[in-house]
Amino acid sequence: MSWLLLGTCLLVVGPAVQGVPGQCPSLCHCHGDLQHVICDNVGLKKIPRVSEVTRLLNLQRNSLGNIPTGAFSESKGLISLHMQHCQLREIGSQAFKGLKKLVYLYLSMNEINSIKPGAFEDLTELTYLYLDGNQISDLAKGIFSPMINLFILQLNDNKLRELRQGTFEGAKDLRWLHMSGNELTTLQPGSLDDVENLAILHLDNNKMSTYPSVAMSKLRVVEELTLGKNPMRTIPDNAFQSFGRYMEKLSLDNMGLEKFSDGAFTGVTAIKSLHLDNNKLKSLPRSLEYGTITNLTLSNNPWSCTCQLAPLRRWMDSSRNRPDAVCASPPQQKGKQVRDSTAMSGCRVKPKRAKKGTRHWPSNVQPSRYLNA
Rank of each mutant, 00 (worst) to 15 (best):
259 K>C: 01
76 K>I: 12
42 V>R: 13
16 A>Y: 00
192 L>A: 02
15 P>C: 03
32 G>L: 11
248 E>G: 09
346 G>T: 09
146 P>T: 03
18 Q>R: 10
284 L>W: 03
325 A>P: 10
86 C>N: 09
68 P>L: 11
309 L>T: 04
28 C>I: 02
261 S>P: 00
175 R>N: 05
325 A>W: 14
172 K>P: 00
24 C>E: 02
156 N>C: 00
142 G>I: 05
250 L>N: 05
154 Q>W: 06
285 P>V: 04
265 F>P: 02
230 N>Y: 12
183 E>G: 01
124 T>F: 05
232 M>V: 06
197 N>Y: 14
210 T>S: 14
3 W>K: 04
127 T>V: 05
170 G>P: 09
319 S>P: 11
194 D>N: 14
77 G>I: 03
365 V>H: 06
309 L>W: 05
344 M>D: 05
252 L>T: 05
219 L>W: 01
161 R>M: 14
53 V>L: 12
262 D>P: 09
328 A>E: 10
262 D>E: 15
296 L>E: 09
322 R>G: 01
373 A>M: 10
349 V>R: 10
166 G>E: 13
60 Q>W: 06
48 P>A: 02
243 F>T: 03
123 L>M: 13
218 K>P: 00
206 N>T: 04
346 G>S: 14
236 P>E: 08
142 G>D: 07
5 L>Y: 11
1 M>L: 09
231 P>W: 07
350 K>L: 06
53 V>S: 14
1 M>S: 08
159 K>G: 03
126 L>K: 08
32 G>H: 09
348 R>A: 10
38 I>L: 00
187 L>Q: 06
317 D>N: 15
146 P>C: 06
52 E>K: 11
147 M>E: 08
161 R>C: 09
267 G>Q: 04
99 L>F: 12
103 V>A: 06
282 K>D: 01
212 P>Q: 09
308 Q>Y: 04
168 F>W: 08
149 N>S: 13
167 T>E: 04
159 K>C: 13
101 K>C: 01
18 Q>H: 05
131 L>F: 10
196 E>K: 13
197 N>K: 11
226 T>S: 14
2 S>L: 12
117 P>Y: 06
164 R>D: 09
89 R>N: 14
160 L>Q: 07
206 N>R: 04
61 R>Y: 13
71 A>L: 10
314 R>A: 14
145 S>K: 12
243 F>R: 01
336 K>E: 14
135 Q>T: 10
126 L>I: 07
47 I>P: 07
333 Q>C: 00
332 Q>E: 12
280 K>Q: 13
305 C>A: 03
372 N>K: 07
240 F>G: 04
199 A>N: 02
310 A>H: 12
102 L>T: 13
140 A>T: 13
59 L>Y: 04
5 L>N: 08
287 S>E: 02
290 Y>K: 02
329 S>Y: 05
292 T>Q: 11
243 F>N: 01
334 K>A: 15
198 L>F: 04
249 K>W: 06
96 F>M: 06
366 Q>Y: 15
60 Q>M: 07
137 S>E: 14
340 D>K: 15
96 F>R: 02
126 L>Q: 11
50 V>R: 01
48 P>H: 04
309 L>S: 06
260 F>P: 09
343 A>G: 07
